[in-house]
Simulated scan of single mutants.
Amino acid sequence: MRILALGLVMSALLAAPAFAQGDAAAGAAVFKKCQSCHAVGEGAKNKVGPELNDLFGRVAGSVPDFKYSQAMIDAGAGGLTWTPETLHEFLTKPKDFVKGTKMSFPGLKDPADVDNLVAYLETFSTAPAEAPAQ
């Protein structure tokens, strides 16, 4: 019986998402670093950066009426889709993840801040924050 229980626990751990579930309320505070360039919520419009509603599952560089860098357009054409994993990498060091992006933000150093921001952004998405089926 113990072996079965251990097997179930291990299966659950291996099936868990790659990143810890964040705290959306804490993510709202982290988003304050983003809001001068990005908007979310009802009536969100593009600013210096694109609006971030329905971000999960979105192909990079695909918000209508936003002028992306060619690097971001190319990343989307190459298959970059926003998921918790890709956002984690991008938000840690944007210019390293998409070389040539015009996003000037240097990145978030604390992984918990990224987890929380992802949880917050998920509240503005109709798609679940998971990788799309291939």
Results as ranks from 00 to 15, higher is better:
residue 1 M to A: 14
residue 5 A to K: 12
residue 5 A to M: 13
residue 7 G to C: 14
residue 11 S to C: 12
residue 12 A to K: 10
residue 13 L to D: 08
residue 13 L to K: 10
residue 18 A to S: 03
residue 20 A to I: 05
residue 22 G to M: 02
residue 22 G to Q: 03
residue 25 A to E: 09
residue 26 A to C: 08
residue 28 A to D: 07
residue 28 A to F: 06
residue 28 A to K: 14
residue 32 K to H: 04
residue 32 K to E: 14
residue 32 K to I: 00
residue 35 Q to S: 15
residue 35 Q to P: 00
residue 36 S to M: 12
residue 38 H to Q: 11
residue 41 G to Q: 07
residue 41 G to L: 09
residue 42 E to K: 14
residue 42 E to M: 08
residue 45 K to A: 15
residue 46 N to E: 00
residue 47 K to T: 09
residue 52 L to N: 11
residue 55 L to I: 15
residue 56 F to M: 09
residue 57 G to V: 09
residue 57 G to A: 05
residue 61 G to Y: 00
residue 63 V to F: 03
residue 64 P to G: 00
residue 69 S to I: 06
residue 72 M to K: 04
residue 74 D to G: 05
residue 74 D to P: 00
residue 78 G to L: 01
residue 79 G to V: 04
residue 79 G to L: 08
residue 80 L to T: 13
residue 80 L to W: 00
residue 81 T to C: 01
residue 82 W to N: 01
residue 84 P to W: 09
residue 85 E to C: 06
residue 85 E to I: 01
residue 86 T to V: 01
residue 87 L to N: 08
residue 88 H to P: 08
residue 88 H to F: 14
residue 89 E to G: 13
residue 89 E to D: 06
residue 91 L to E: 00
residue 92 T to H: 12
residue 93 K to V: 03
residue 93 K to A: 14
residue 94 P to F: 06
residue 96 D to W: 01
residue 97 F to G: 03
residue 97 F to R: 12
residue 98 V to G: 10
residue 98 V to W: 03
residue 99 K to G: 00
residue 99 K to F: 08
residue 99 K to L: 05
residue 101 T to Y: 10
residue 103 M to Y: 05
residue 106 P to G: 04
residue 107 G to T: 01
residue 108 L to W: 01
residue 109 K to C: 00
residue 110 D to Q: 04
residue 113 D to M: 02
residue 114 V to H: 02
residue 115 D to T: 01
residue 115 D to V: 00
residue 118 V to W: 05
residue 119 A to C: 11
residue 119 A to D: 11
residue 119 A to R: 12
residue 120 Y to H: 11
residue 120 Y to M: 08
residue 122 E to D: 10
residue 124 F to Y: 15
residue 126 T to F: 06
residue 126 T to R: 14
residue 129 A to Y: 05
residue 129 A to W: 10
residue 131 A to C: 10
residue 131 A to P: 07
residue 131 A to S: 15
